[in-house]
């Protein structure tokens, strides 16, 4: 019974996982990224446009990532360079992405999906699905075992430490936000490639759900992506519509769990120390 749900769990969790990893990079560098939703949406849009224009899904993936990066750059310029409020900027990014995609809405034409790889015992999934665990582990190593990751985290934890090493906080925050745009863009591409077309507002709150997973996973790649699998499973259960549980309850479960964790009833979730604070 549960085994049947594995394919749809994986499909639900993958875009979330990418966006969540993106959120972790940005928030670890001290910048709240509420724009994940918009970056995913524009990524999905870019994928469809790119694939339609060139009839190559790889080119579509490239364009999708490029679009995600472009929005991330806007977020970075606004929040890091101009010290704009990070929360409001993120919401602005989401509205902007919704507007651009609605304005340029492509004809509802089918596009090809990204290549599927057949693996023994696992089945056939888009290669993006296999990429997620790899990136999850890589992100963990990058963030917690390398000097590079230490500096990125220092941008979010202790500005003084960075300053003492005469490193620029700006640079690391830019990197963190651009990473989040790149990853959210891939998540969006996956979303569009699985359903083969783009529809208005197709991310449907996934960016916010990914943000919840970031918090649920205590701003760590391994637990953050695991949270995405949990959330993905809840969605898969909801779609399977079995055992007579109201779908809406399953739907709101990730949000309730995140609130519980954030409040500290179960375990603790601690944000990076200077998250959301601007350098003066």
């Amino acid at each position: 019974m549960v085994l049947e749900l594995i394919p749809s769990t994986l499909r639900m969790a993958t875009p979330l996982g990418f966006a969540a990893l993106g959120g972790i990079y940005s928030e670890r560098a001290g910048v709240i990224n509420l724009g994940l939703e918009g970056m995913m949406l524009i990524g999905a849009f870019g994928y469809v446009i790119g694939t339609q224009g060139s009839s190559s899904t790889w080119f579509g993936l490239l364009i999708g990532i490029g679009c995600g990066l472009a929005l991330a750059l806007l977020h970075a310029v606004a929040t890091v360079t101009f010290h704009a409020d990070q929360v409001v900027t993120g919401i602005g990014i989401n509205i902007l992405a919704l507007g651009i995609t609605e304005y340029l809405l492509p004809l509802p034409k089918q596009v090809g999906g990204l290549p599927h790889w057949e693996l023994p015992f696992i089945g056939s999934y888009s290669f993006i699905v296999y990429l997620l665990p790899v990136l999850m582990v890589a992100s963990h190593i990058l963030l917690f075992k390398t000097p590079w990751g230490l500096r990125l985290r220092a941008a979010g934890e202790s500005t003084e430490a960075l300053a003492a090493l005469s490193l620029s906080r700006t640079k690391w925050q830019y990197l963190g936000i651009l990473f989040s745009g790149l990853l959210a863009g891939i998540g969006g591409c996956f979303l569009a490639s699985e359903v083969h077309y783009f529809t208005k507002g197709m991310t449907a709150g996934r960016g916010y759900l990914a943000l919840a997973a970031v918090i649920f996973g205590n701003w760590r790649p391994l637990s953050g992506v695991s949270a995405c699998f949990l959330f993905g499973f809840a969605t898969a259960l909801e779609l399977a519509n079995r055992w007579n549980i109201p779908g809406q309850l399953l739907h709101s479960l990730p949000y309730i769990l995140t609130m519980v964790v954030l409040v500290g009833f179960v375990g603790t979730s601690r944000p990076p120390a200077s998250l959301g604070k601007m350098k003066l």
Partner: peptide, 19 residues
């Protein structure tokens, strides 16, 4: 969507000025 996009830019512009 033109107005939505414009609204998004308006928001970002305003927070940048404030920042």
């Amino acid at each position: 969507g033109l107005f939505f996009a414009g609204q998004g830019m308006l928001i970002i512009w305003l927070v940048c000025i404030e920042g």
